[in-house]
Lab assay of single mutants.
Amino acid sequence: DIIVVALYDYEAIHHEDLSFQKGDQMVVLEESGEWWKARSLATRKEGYIPSNYVARVD
């Protein structure tokens, strides 16, 4: 699995987006352009995240 960590807070604009806080970790389900589908490890919610707001966890 690809795990990413949020570098900034993000508040969902569209209903299919996933809100998150800086430091939250998410599993990337699908990488497509600038918006990736991800699942929050904390809340288990799924949605689209801006890929430039996150960094991969090695």
Score class of each variant (00 low, 15 high):
1 D>E: 07
1 D>W: 01
1 D>V: 10
2 I>W: 05
2 I>E: 04
2 I>D: 08
2 I>N: 14
2 I>A: 03
2 I>Q: 07
3 I>M: 13
3 I>R: 08
3 I>Y: 10
4 V>Y: 12
4 V>E: 00
4 V>Q: 02
4 V>P: 00
4 V>S: 02
4 V>M: 02
5 V>H: 05
5 V>K: 03
5 V>M: 11
5 V>A: 12
5 V>E: 05
5 V>F: 15
5 V>N: 04
5 V>D: 03
5 V>G: 04
6 A>V: 00
7 L>Y: 05
7 L>I: 08
7 L>D: 05
7 L>K: 11
7 L>H: 15
8 Y>S: 09
8 Y>C: 07
8 Y>V: 09
8 Y>Q: 05
8 Y>E: 07
9 D>Q: 11
9 D>N: 09
11 E>W: 06
11 E>I: 05
11 E>S: 15
11 E>C: 15
11 E>T: 11
12 A>Y: 08
12 A>M: 08
13 I>V: 05
14 H>A: 07
14 H>L: 09
14 H>G: 14
14 H>T: 05
14 H>Q: 08
14 H>R: 14
15 H>L: 11
15 H>I: 09
15 H>K: 14
15 H>C: 15
15 H>Y: 11
15 H>R: 14
16 E>S: 13
16 E>D: 15
16 E>F: 12
16 E>V: 10
17 D>C: 04
17 D>P: 01
17 D>Q: 15
17 D>I: 11
17 D>M: 08
17 D>N: 15
19 S>H: 10
19 S>I: 01
19 S>W: 03
19 S>A: 05
19 S>Q: 04
20 F>K: 00
20 F>S: 00
20 F>M: 06
20 F>P: 00
21 Q>S: 13
21 Q>G: 08
21 Q>A: 12
21 Q>E: 07
21 Q>I: 13
21 Q>Y: 15
21 Q>L: 12
21 Q>T: 13
22 K>D: 01
22 K>Y: 10
22 K>F: 01
22 K>S: 12
22 K>W: 00
22 K>A: 08
22 K>I: 09
23 G>M: 04
23 G>L: 03
23 G>D: 05
23 G>F: 03
23 G>N: 14
23 G>H: 03
23 G>R: 03
24 D>S: 06
24 D>E: 03
24 D>Y: 03
24 D>N: 06
24 D>M: 03
25 Q>R: 12
25 Q>W: 05
25 Q>C: 03
26 M>A: 00
26 M>H: 01
27 V>L: 14
27 V>T: 07
27 V>N: 02
27 V>K: 15
27 V>Q: 12
28 V>I: 12
28 V>M: 08
28 V>G: 00
29 L>D: 03
29 L>C: 13
29 L>E: 04
29 L>H: 03
29 L>S: 08
30 E>R: 04
30 E>V: 06
31 E>H: 02
31 E>L: 07
31 E>W: 06
31 E>A: 03
31 E>V: 08
31 E>G: 04
32 S>A: 11
32 S>T: 03
32 S>Y: 08
32 S>Q: 15
33 G>V: 05
33 G>Q: 13
33 G>F: 05
33 G>M: 03
33 G>D: 13
33 G>E: 10
35 W>F: 15
35 W>C: 10
35 W>Q: 14
36 W>R: 06
37 K>S: 07
37 K>A: 06
37 K>W: 11
37 K>L: 13
37 K>D: 01
37 K>Q: 15
37 K>F: 14
37 K>T: 11
37 K>M: 14
38 A>R: 01
38 A>E: 00
38 A>S: 05
38 A>Y: 02
38 A>K: 02
38 A>V: 13
39 R>G: 02
39 R>I: 08
39 R>N: 03
39 R>W: 07
39 R>Y: 03
39 R>D: 00
40 S>L: 13
40 S>M: 14
40 S>W: 00
40 S>R: 09
41 L>R: 08
41 L>E: 11
41 L>F: 11
42 A>H: 10
42 A>W: 03
42 A>P: 12
42 A>T: 12
42 A>F: 15
42 A>R: 14
43 T>C: 05
43 T>Y: 06
43 T>M: 04
43 T>W: 02
44 R>H: 07
44 R>P: 10
44 R>F: 13
44 R>A: 15
44 R>I: 10
45 K>E: 14
45 K>H: 15
45 K>D: 10
45 K>W: 05
45 K>L: 13
45 K>S: 11
46 E>I: 05
46 E>P: 02
46 E>M: 09
46 E>A: 11
46 E>N: 07
47 G>A: 02
47 G>Q: 00
47 G>I: 01
47 G>R: 00
48 Y>T: 13
48 Y>W: 13
48 Y>V: 10
48 Y>A: 10
49 I>S: 00
49 I>C: 04
49 I>F: 04
49 I>G: 01
49 I>E: 00
50 P>G: 03
50 P>I: 03
50 P>Y: 12
50 P>Q: 08
51 S>C: 11
51 S>Y: 05
51 S>W: 09
51 S>T: 09
52 N>K: 12
52 N>M: 14
52 N>A: 11
52 N>P: 08
52 N>T: 12
53 Y>N: 03
53 Y>R: 08
54 V>G: 01
54 V>R: 01
54 V>I: 06
55 A>N: 09
55 A>S: 10
56 R>I: 10
56 R>W: 07
56 R>T: 10
56 R>G: 07
57 V>G: 09
57 V>L: 13
57 V>D: 04
57 V>A: 06
58 D>G: 10
58 D>L: 01
